[in-house]
C-alpha cells in the first residue's frame, strides 16, 4: 500500500477520534469518458481486449466486452447491467449489478474465464455469474487495508444517467 500523508493515515487509524461528528453525502458523477479512461488503465495481462462502459438514462449501464475465450475464440458482447439497491452497513454489504441481457446460451466459457480471472487476480469478495456481478464492499475495503472505514459507510449507491454513472456515498462518523 502506498505511504499516505500523516493526517489521512490518522483518519484511517481512528476515524471516530479525528472525524467523529461528520455526516456528509457525496454524489460523484463520473462521465463516460472518465469511466473509459479508468477501464483503459486496467492491467495489460488480461484476456479482455476491449472493455467500454456506456451509461444510459433510466438506471441501465451497457458494458461492451471483447474477450478471447478458450474454444470459442474472439467474441464481442454488449452486456446490460442494472444497478441494485444501496449498500448500507451492516445489513446490506453487497453492491450488486444485475445482468439484464447480453450473455447467450453458449457463453459458459466466457463466464468461466472471467470467474477464473477474478479468482486469480482480485481479492475475495467479487462474485460473477450469468445473472449478476456483485461486490462485497466490507471484504474489499478490508483487503485494501481500509477496514476502519467500513462502519462509516451508511449508504453507497450506484445509479446511471445518460452518459454518466453517479456514485452516492454517505459517511457518518
Amino acid at each position: 500500500m502506498p505511504t499516505l500523508p500523516e493526517p489521512l493515515a490518522a483518519i484511517l487509524e481512528d476515524p471516530a477520534a479525528h472525524i467523529g461528528g461528520t455526516d456528509a453525502t457525496l454524489d460523484l458523477c463520473l462521465d463516460r469518458v472518465l469511466l473509459n479512461e479508468i477501464l483503459a488503465a486496467r492491467p495489460k495481462d488480461t484476456p479482455v481486449e476491449e472493455l467500454l462502459l456506456d451509461p444510459e438514462a433510466g438506471n441501465l449501464v451497457n458494458l461492451h466486452l471483447q474477450v478471447h475465450a478458450p474454444v470459442i475464440g474472439n467474441v464481442r458482447r454488449k452486456i446490460s447491467l442494472k444497478p441494485g439497491p444501496a449498500v448500507s452497513f451492516p445489513d446490506q454489504p453487497w453492491l450488486r449489478l444485475n445482468i439484464t441481457s447480453g450473455f447467450k446460451m453458449f457463453d459458459k466459457p466466457i463466464i468461466k474465464m472471467v470467474q477464473g480471472q477474478i479468482a486469480e487476480k482480485l481479492p475475495r469478495g467479487i462474485e460473477f455469474t450469468s445473472d449478476y456481478l456483485q461486490l462485497h464492499v466490507p471484504a474489499l475495503l478490508t483487503a485494501a487495508g481500509y477496514q476502519q472505514l467500513v462502519p462509516l459507510i451508511k449508504e453507497l449507491r450506484l445509479t446511471s444517467e445518460a452518459n454518466r454513472l453517479v456514485v452516492r456515498l454517505r459517511i457518518v462518523a
Binding site: 467523529g20 456528509a24 463520473l30 462521465d31 472518465l34 453517479v166
Partner: peptide
C-alpha cells in the same frame, strides 16, 4: 497514474455535476 493525468488535463470537467453536502468534523489534532 493515467486517470489522474486525464483529470488534470481536462480540469476535472468529467466530474461535473458532483456535489457534497453535510457537516465535516475535523479534530484539533488532525
Amino acid at each position: 497514474h493515467p486517470v489522474q493525468k486525464h483529470l488534470f488535463d481536462t480540469n476535472f470537467k468529467d466530474l461535473a455535476g458532483s456535489k457534497i453536502e453535510g457537516t465535516i468534523a475535523i479534530s484539533d489534532e488532525l
